[in-house]
Design a protein around this nucleic acid. Sequence first.
DNA 1: TTGTATGCGTTATCAT
DNA 2: ATGATAACGCATACAA
Lengths: 345, 345
Amino acid sequence: MEKQATIKDIAKTLNVSTSTVSRALRNTHDVKQETRKAVMALAEQLNYQPNQLALHLLKKQTHTIGVIVPNLDYVISTMVKGIDEVALEAGYTVMVCQSNESYGREIVNTKRLLDSLVDGFIVSLSCDTTEVDHIKNIQDRKKPIVLFDRISSSLIAPKVKIDNEEAGYLATSHLIEQGYKRIALLAGPKKLELSNHRMDGYLKALKENNIKVDKDLIIFCDFNQDYAYFATKELLAMKRRPDAIFAIADKMAIGAMLAIKEKKLNMPNDIGLVGMNNDPATRLVTPTISTVEMPAFELGKTAAKMFIEMMHSEKDMNEEEIVLKNKLIIRESSQKILVPNKLGK
Amino acid sequence: MEKQATIKDIAKTLNVSTSTVSRALRNTHDVKQETRKAVMALAEQLNYQPNQLALHLLKKQTHTIGVIVPNLDYVISTMVKGIDEVALEAGYTVMVCQSNESYGREIVNTKRLLDSLVDGFIVSLSCDTTEVDHIKNIQDRKKPIVLFDRISSSLIAPKVKIDNEEAGYLATSHLIEQGYKRIALLAGPKKLELSNHRMDGYLKALKENNIKVDKDLIIFCDFNQDYAYFATKELLAMKRRPDAIFAIADKMAIGAMLAIKEKKLNMPNDIGLVGMNNDPATRLVTPTISTVEMPAFELGKTAAKMFIEMMHSEKDMNEEEIVLKNKLIIRESSQKILVPNKLGK
DNA sequence: TTGTATGCGTTATCAT
DNA sequence: ATGATAACGCATACAA
């Protein structure tokens, strides 16, 4: 089997025109039984496969979705799985590109996908992304785009995200309920809106409980275990150290945990800790870490569904924004008051 | 900006032929300065971007690599990062598809990519894959393919993998050195060649140390924490239970750890444990788990390099097989004899 | 230096 | 029921 057989090859061998072959192959109804059989047989024999590239050029679409994500850690790859599932079902192929949290990389990826092959985009922004011209570029080119998870409000597009404020609120209220008074916040990268929304939830919970905000207890830092570790060390070195920490991602919570252990502080008695994402690691460490679970798989599925809907309908969906709810999972790191059957597994 | 501008649009506006425009755009040397300037200016103004689809059809290549992986867990996404890095550098775009350890899914993915857009493949097989006709299909179609990590010896293709036998040998010898006598093996899926190679290393180490093989201590199981947990429970329930376990993946080692802790056995004193992959979780749990670290990032890079080389040269690389070495990382779970400065961090 | 014609593989339109 | 032709967007051999 040397080269891919084309419609022409079949046509030539059978002494018919390419149009006839094309019709026969696609079961159009105005073609003689004999001819069709002959065509089908030969196609089978030559292992004929339609050249999608040619079709793409003709139809001006590729049935491919470009998915741009900042990385492929546990949560994000769960989201991607969700996208994958829905997209495949709908006959779309998915191209995943990681920007590695780099703005430059994100631009290169976007440009490449844009220039070539994708019908549209599902995007979650990198930490590093402040300018969003490359995204607007996509929109200028009339390619549909759905933003998910890490979103910028300066972009007008259909959006799917979780209720970040709720997440911050859930975690912080829980800590307050458990009797913690000086609650620190490892707040993630300041550039990221999601960080600020989670902080809003944190602030709301404090306010509702008449706890004064101490700016020194709010630390912006990368989604990064090491950074969180050092930040926590500093927190613990304060004259009046915090008695609890909410980290807006489990990676950071784990960094915090390491610093806490190093200081020989006991969780939850000396200090409480809550993370976010329900990373499997939080169940493995000692003590197990309480966390806010976001519906990552669902989030991915929803984003893909929205994308498909946008492709199929002509209506403007730029104003749509779907917000998914979270779930607090209480584990050892923050459970001072023992209510055994409430202890999350 | 309504629709993408084409060469035709520019040609029409400027009253020149499309070929002239094409040449001007690509800086070919037989075009008048004036014309070029005019073309460039208008192209800029219209935000002209060459239609890659058309180019692909013309050139019969897409500069896209289809990467098929069984999932996107920690190790594999590290490998993918390696592939990404090299591929991007070489001007290739990467399409990542996860088969979710499903043979059926792998086939669908392969077929889609094959039919459409990719110039070739870099593939790691799913656990579930015993038949490899879909891969042979790729080869029949003369598309280059590199196999990496999870490889089948029934396929003739360039291959990149780690020295799995060495890995098994390193882990097992280490356990023997530490004085363990009855070493169990959580061996991974039997279908996977890599499982068997790691077992070979295990067997070799036992033999070298005149330890009789006890078949009851060898358990094949999925790359799966839960399965490993149950398998370990059974091992620990034996009349003569093992005094050490080598799990060929950290996920499984963690399952084993949970079973061991549940039985209140002490690591490393009552029982030793070594995993593989250097999953970050192994450093977080108590006790920290010894592991065999494979060069995942390097593996990905090497696979991509091999792919690029294959694309650029015409020589047959089917016989090439690159084998990368591993590194034993000793941590608390298997370190009975204390040599402080040898303790891996 | 520039234009014309042809082809990449396919489908759609219009004839026959 | 089938064939010829144009078109998708671009590059290139050949002509001028």
